[in-house]
């Protein structure tokens, strides 16, 4: 670690699901650190446990399932796994926020997008409805929605996928969290829109001084985005390091395989 200190220290984190009484461990004792304001990438294939790791930090179990978390998740020195649900609710959205994979399904279809930003502001900052709405319009402008004052009264179905992801990012950064977890934030989007969303995330991280935990299966996404990378495979961290070093000389065979999966211009020319 460098001299910035640590924001998040995860030690021996385990996650175990109980499916019909059969325990299945999907995260097998991983440890990592994130410094304040730092951008860290988590890369691995589907089912490698990276999303479960993200949800563990938020302590969000999928609806109707039971997860047992083990180990320690120290956020500013406080172990999140020991907080009660009430304290954890104050943490979510305010200190640690999350952007999910599918923007098409992540907004409440029966509420205006403005109301969905208002409610988190009212919950965590204790401002009036009217003040919240002013801030909501600012936030929508910040994430690049045109005519934010008008668009705040529109419903999610009136927005495209990329615009909805912008709204979800506005929700996530609304209370200026210390840590933003982005779980495959661009996977469901068109390639051109992907780049815009990634640039937006980078800009907001800089402007708001947030740490960013960027989870993806695609090394192409994190190139140029993060400083350090953790490579996950089978519920374990198999390799980590500075991104440039990792690109230059991957040590673990799985990392080599992942890097080989990123299409390159030269190979594309050769096969064309």
């Amino acid at each position: 670690m460098d001299d910035r200190g640590t924001l998040l220290q995860v030690r021996d984190l385990t996650a175990q699901f109980n499916l019909d009484g059969v325990p299945s461990r999907v995260v097998k004792g991983i440890s990592f650190d994130i410094a304040p304001g730092e951008a860290v990438g988590f890369v691995g294939e589907s089912g490698c446990g990276k999303s479960v790791t993200a949800r563990a930090i938020m302590r969000l179990a999928p609806e109707g399932s039971s997860v047992e978390w083990g180990g320690r998740i120290l956020f500013r020195g406080q172990d999140l796994l020991t907080l009660d649900e009430h304290e954890m609710r104050d943490m979510r959205g305010r200190r640690i926020a999350m952007v999910f994979q599918d923007p098409m399904a992540s907004l409440n279809p029966v509420m205006t997008v403005g109301a969905q930003i208002d409610d988190i502001l009212c919950r965590h900052t204790g401002v009036s409805r009217r003040a919240a709405r002013r801030r909501t319009v600012e936030l929508l402008g910040l994430v690049g929605i045109h005519d934010p004052a008008l668009r705040a009264d529109d419903y999610p179905h009136q927005f495209s996928g990329g615009m909805r992801q912008r709204v979800l990012i506005a929700i996530a950064v609304s209370c200026q969290p210390d840590l933003l977890i982005a779980d495959e934030p661009t996977t469901a989007l068109d390639v051109t829109v992907q780049a815009q969303i990634l640039r937006l995330l980078m800009r907001l991280r800089r402007e708001l001084g947030m740490a960013l935990m960027l989870i993806t299966h695609d090394f192409g996404v994190i190139a140029g985005m993060v400083e350090r990378v953790y490579v996950m495979h089978g519920g374990e961290i198999v390799e980590f390091g500075e991104i440039d070093a990792l690109f230059a000389g991957p040590r673990h065979s799985y990392t080599q395989a992942l890097l080989a999966a990123v299409p390159r211009i030269e190979t594309a020319r050769r096969t064309a």
């Binding site: 969000l60 109707g64 609710r89 979510r92 992540s106 409610d119 988190i120």
Partner: peptide, 22 residues
């Protein structure tokens, strides 16, 4: 309950009664 937007609502730290109602 299993919709993504309910998960988002929980990730926002909203109170249980807000999630239930809205």
């Amino acid at each position: 309950s299993s919709q993504d937007y309910v998960m988002v609502a929980r990730a926002k730290g909203l109170l249980a009664r807000t999630i239930l109602g809205n």
